[in-house]
């Protein structure tokens, strides 16, 4: 029982980060009909910014850790928004709805940005001090408070996104554009601006995931790429463009990873995910919650 609770906690904690990451990817796909292979670089950028800001503010200025983390978090989101804005305006703007073109562009960006990070930060992993120290015991399973807070924050962000997409006017235009771009434009929705918003929201979600992840794991310049394959599996399972699908898919993949990784080993768990995808493709090619293909 204790073990299962521990594994379940683990699932929720990995899952919450997966969900944020996959939500960004699926949102960008929904609005722009492109697969962003450079999504991991947003994650990495945020995590790297958090480490450097905290190193500066805690060590040099001596700010309290929680306060400097807040500043670092905001800085990370800002930096990623700027990166997102630049790559949209000088790149993605030209390959909207062009699957092959956007693939190449995002791979080019992946190489360019990862190379730049490596030059700026070097290959040594960096860690930040614990923002909230201490442990907590839930049903016999021990958990650092930090990880609990991470889960809660990720859940709040996910909820916020869900409300944004389903309850606001911007969300309505995002969904309209995802559904049928031309019909949406006929209704007076400015497609390019909505695409930009969708892209920036997606990038910000990856940045949130990265900034949160920096608190619990050492940061390297390729940290975001590890999430990419799993995020792809998640959005295939959940259906491209589906918000709920990304949430369910993320939790499912985290469940397999956590339990499979414990009872067998991590690579068996990854293989199991792929087998799941194969079965799903045979039964339901458009994903659990995806729309039928046109």
């Amino acid at each position: 029982m204790e073990l299962q609770v521990q594994l379940l906690m683990n699932t929720l904690q990995i899952g919450s980060v997966y969900v944020l990451f996959a939500l960004g990817l699926t949102l960008i796909f929904g609005v722009m009909k492109i697969v962003n292979f450079a999504h991991g670089t947003f994650f990495t950028a945020a995590a790297l910014v958090v480490t450097s800001v905290m190193m500066w503010s805690v060590d040099t200025i001596g700010m309290p850790i929680w306060f400097s983390y807040l500043i670092a978090f905001v800085m990370a989101l800002l930096v990623v928004c700027v990166i997102g804005f630049v790559v949209y305006f000088f790149g993605f703007k030209y390959v909207l709805k062009d699957l092959n073109g956007s693939f190449i562009l995002s791979i080019g960006l992946l190489l360019l940005l990862n190379g730049t990070y490596l030059i700026l930060y070097g290959g040594v992993p960096r860690s930040i001090p614990a923002v909230i120290p201490g442990n907590i015991t839930i049903l016999g399973a021990s958990l650092t408070i930090q990880r609990l807070v991470l889960m809660i924050v990720a859940a709040i962000i996910t909820l916020g996104l869900y409300i944004l997409v389903h309850r606001t006017k911007l969300g309505l235009s995002l969904r309209a554009v995802a559904e049928d771009q031309e019909a949406a434009m006929l209704q007076g929705i400015p497609y390019r601006r909505v695409a930009l918003y969708g892209f920036l929201i997606g990038a910000t979600l990856a940045a949130c995931a990265g900034a949160l992840m920096a608190t619990v794991t050492p940061v390297t310049t390729v940290i975001g790429d590890d999430f990419l394959v799993k995020a792809f599996i998640i959005i295939i399972i959940g259906g491209l463009g589906s918000v709920l699908g990304a949430i369910l898919g993320g939790l499912l993949i985290a469940l397999i990873e956590s339990f499979g990784g414990y009872y067998f080993d991590p690579s068996t768990a990854t293989l199991a995910m792929f087998v799941l995808v194969v079965i799903l493709l045979i039964v339901r090619p458009q994903g659990i919650l995806g729309h039928a293909e046109k």
Binding site: G108, L111, L112, G115, I119
Partner: peptide
């Protein structure tokens, strides 16, 4: 070294656009 990847990235983006 790392500049190799930057070069490839730049050439890919440049060629595409």
């Amino acid at each position: 070294g790392p500049y190799e990847n930057i070069f490839y990235g730049a050439i890919i983006i440049g060629a595409l656009l």
